[in-house]
Computed example of a mutant assay.
Amino acid sequence: MKQLVIAIDGYSSCGKSTTAKAVASLLHYAYVDTGAMYRAVTLHLLEQGISFDDMARIEQVLREISITFRRHRHTGRNELFLNGVNCEDDIRQMRISNSVSEVSVIPMVRHAMVAQQQQMGRKRGVVMDGRDIGTTVFPDAEVKIFMTADVELRARRRQDELAATGEQVPLEDIIENLRKRDYLDSTRAESPLRRAADAVLLDTTHITIAEQVDFVLDRVSSALFMAGWD
């Protein structure tokens, strides 16, 4: 069976990653969390004390850092490694969430990450989630989904994720962070967050993860049927 590129874009905490991972697992596709890549760059800049407007240092960093994904052999969790070090938990901290949109608007950062993402998906058979997959990274993706949800629900989901790692953050702070990120992501000049013309809208406010997965799989089946690949 011919393999597809599945692009899942949308706002933070809509269930993109959870849905994308489940779909990838069921289809035996590779999974790439592109948002985690921008979080990794943000983490590195913060830990190295590099200003977000120091373009010379950032350009040097982008030439030197290595970002890879590995699946944990026991838990099956997809984990990000930055220069060989597992940073999956570190990149999910609120301090990274507060800065990642500022880093992701930097053109050279986006160019570097998009190039890596395109390389990761060049053999197809991949599920990618992010904000510009269906518009910039893989505009020819056979399946494009754009996810959204009520901002307060998104904030509660994010709060639960943070609490699971021991980080307690007031709901109001998370809502403010999400709104700020939505604005920055949607208005940036380089690859802004927007729904591709041929992307199917999926509002996850009132549906379960299982229903989200089924929705995407239905789109996959339709794409295969229409192309005569089933």
Rank of each mutant, 00 (worst) to 15 (best):
residue 150 D to Q: 06
residue 138 F to L: 10
residue 137 V to E: 01
residue 114 V to R: 09
residue 188 R to A: 09
residue 147 M to E: 04
residue 147 M to C: 03
residue 198 D to H: 12
residue 107 P to I: 04
residue 179 R to V: 08
residue 156 R to V: 11
residue 130 G to K: 06
residue 103 V to A: 05
residue 105 V to C: 12
residue 156 R to T: 13
residue 142 E to V: 06
residue 154 R to C: 04
residue 198 D to G: 12
residue 128 M to D: 07
residue 150 D to L: 07
residue 146 F to G: 05
residue 110 R to L: 02
residue 150 D to C: 04
residue 162 L to R: 06
residue 182 D to R: 07
residue 91 I to S: 03
residue 125 G to M: 04
residue 139 P to A: 07
residue 101 S to A: 15
residue 97 S to Q: 07
residue 116 Q to V: 13
residue 93 Q to F: 07
residue 152 E to N: 12
residue 205 T to A: 06
residue 167 E to D: 14
residue 99 S to A: 13
residue 184 L to I: 14
residue 95 R to Q: 12
residue 113 M to T: 09
residue 179 R to K: 15
residue 173 D to E: 13
residue 193 L to W: 06
residue 122 R to F: 04
residue 123 K to I: 01
residue 131 R to A: 03
residue 189 A to W: 08
residue 125 G to F: 08
residue 109 V to M: 07
residue 130 G to V: 03
residue 128 M to A: 03
residue 119 Q to V: 05
residue 168 Q to Y: 12
residue 165 T to A: 09
residue 129 D to V: 07
residue 174 I to M: 03
residue 124 R to F: 01
residue 143 V to W: 01
residue 151 V to K: 02
residue 162 L to E: 00
residue 111 H to D: 15
residue 98 N to C: 12
residue 190 E to Q: 14
residue 194 R to M: 14
residue 160 D to M: 13
residue 140 D to H: 13
residue 161 E to S: 05
residue 117 Q to E: 13
residue 159 Q to C: 06
residue 120 M to W: 13
residue 105 V to K: 14
residue 153 L to P: 01
residue 172 E to A: 14
residue 168 Q to V: 15
residue 128 M to V: 08
residue 95 R to T: 11
residue 114 V to F: 01
residue 207 I to W: 01
residue 90 D to F: 04
residue 115 A to W: 05
residue 105 V to Q: 15
residue 115 A to P: 07
residue 152 E to G: 04
residue 174 I to A: 02
residue 124 R to W: 05
residue 96 I to N: 02
residue 200 V to A: 09
residue 150 D to P: 00
residue 183 Y to P: 02
residue 168 Q to P: 03
residue 183 Y to T: 11
